[in-house]
Amino acid sequence: MQRASFGADVDLRTRRELTALRLTAQRVASPTTATIAETVRYLFAVQAQDLPGARWSVGLRSRGATDADVGAALASGAVVRSWPMRGTLHLVAPEDLGWMLRLTRPRQATFAATRRRALGITDDDMATARRTAVAALEGGRVERRDVLLGRFEGAGIPTTGQRGYHLLWNLAQDGVLVFGPPDGAHPTFALVEEWIRAPRDFEGDEALGEFAARYVASRGPATDRDFAWWSSLTLGQARRALEIAQARSIERGGERYYLAEGLEPAARGIQLLPGFDEFLLGYQDRSAPLSAEFAPRIVPGGNGIFQPTIVVGGLVAGTWRRSTSARAATVEIEPFGELSSTTRAGLGRAARHLGRFLGVPAIIR
């Protein structure tokens, strides 16, 4: 897979133009009254290995939404969680999962095959795991991850040393398993054919065009390389998809960016975005919102764990973290520089928005 880039020679004026348009396209600066399911469907896919962060990513884009609303959408199956792209967990609309996997599975499987061999997972192991999972879950049943892994162990398939994770990942890639309704803090699994009752059926060029159109609408302005990286498609497939979608484009700084018709830039604002939010993770080149000098503070040590970000006027201006109790949420900020009184007031409003989502008062520290 291509590596994402944090730095490029992009002038500040272009950076501000790109991010102002992306804040609108992504509904960060202009949340709507859409339901949680409608927001996820519009965003197409929301990175979700950090589930609490993903819930806030969706919630901040849905005016008036609460964490309980997102939880209810997951519990009912109105939104599902799986590995449709880049070997990474995402929230998607249930009807989209199957056709997305048909497009992205071949390339993902190529990258995963080496790891599976290194873990000693054989084709016989996968066949046994499949039979075991279907027998345990058919009839509309769901089981916690630990219980399902215990069944694999009982069938003679070791699950230690990342083997369990890759067994589940491969079954999800094959369209057998999908995450079911959460059981408290425990993830569960269900059978795709029973949990997703009305899948959409796109194939070939129609699927490529739909993929590109949905990405451009919710992420533009973005380059063909951004789309290829995000989608797990090859660059050739991505360019073909954009051609099929007849995506509008503009040129800035020698780069061609694709975006929706009629997109208007957002007014400058201040947001508290979770780690792994699509405002950063939606692009291969992240230099528009994030200066290269600050990139190490977003992913400390290059460990792949993205810190929550403070975004001021479309540019990343610091990090933050929260601690939450039954009575309050405390937001601790670490700005990259001195904050004006106007910015501090804006952070206070952003924290109150987070508090309303969580259902508790929130304060800045």
Rank of each mutant, 00 (worst) to 15 (best):
T104W: 08
R105I: 00
R105E: 14
P106S: 11
P106I: 13
R107S: 13
Q108C: 02
A109C: 08
T110V: 12
T110C: 11
F111V: 14
F111Y: 10
A112M: 11
A113E: 14
A113S: 14
T114F: 11
R116W: 15
R116N: 12
R117H: 05
A118F: 11
L119A: 06
L119Q: 04
G120Q: 02
T122K: 00
T122G: 08
T122H: 15
D124G: 00
D125C: 00
D125M: 06
A127R: 07
T128K: 06
A129M: 11
R130D: 06
R130C: 08
T132I: 02
A133D: 03
V134P: 03
V134N: 03
A135G: 07
A136G: 07
A136T: 07
G139N: 10
G140R: 05
G140S: 14
G140V: 01
R141P: 05
V142R: 09
E143N: 13
E143G: 13
R144M: 11
D146V: 00
D146I: 05
V147K: 01
L148S: 06
L149I: 07
L149W: 08
F152I: 01
F152C: 02
F152W: 03
E153H: 04
E153P: 02
A155H: 03
I157T: 10
I157P: 09
I157V: 15
I157E: 14
P158M: 11
T160S: 13
G161Y: 14
G161V: 07
Q162E: 12
Q162G: 12
R163G: 09
R163S: 02
G164T: 01
G164K: 05
Y165W: 10
Y165A: 06
Y165P: 04
H166Y: 09
H166D: 04
H166R: 06
H166S: 08
H166G: 00
H166N: 09
W169M: 11
W169S: 13
W169N: 09
W169P: 03
N170P: 01
N170I: 04
L171H: 06
A172P: 00
D174W: 06
D174L: 06
L177H: 09
L177Q: 05
V178Y: 07
V178I: 09
G180R: 02
G180Q: 04
P181A: 15
P181V: 05
P182H: 06
P182A: 04
P182C: 01
D183L: 00
G184F: 05
A185Q: 15
H186I: 07
P187T: 01
T188V: 00
F189D: 06
F189T: 02
L191P: 10
L191F: 10
V192E: 09
E194Q: 08
E194T: 05
E194S: 08
E194G: 10
E194F: 09
W195N: 03
I196F: 12
I196K: 04
R200K: 12
R200V: 08
D201C: 12
F202G: 01
F202C: 03
E203G: 12
E203Y: 14
D205G: 14
D205R: 12
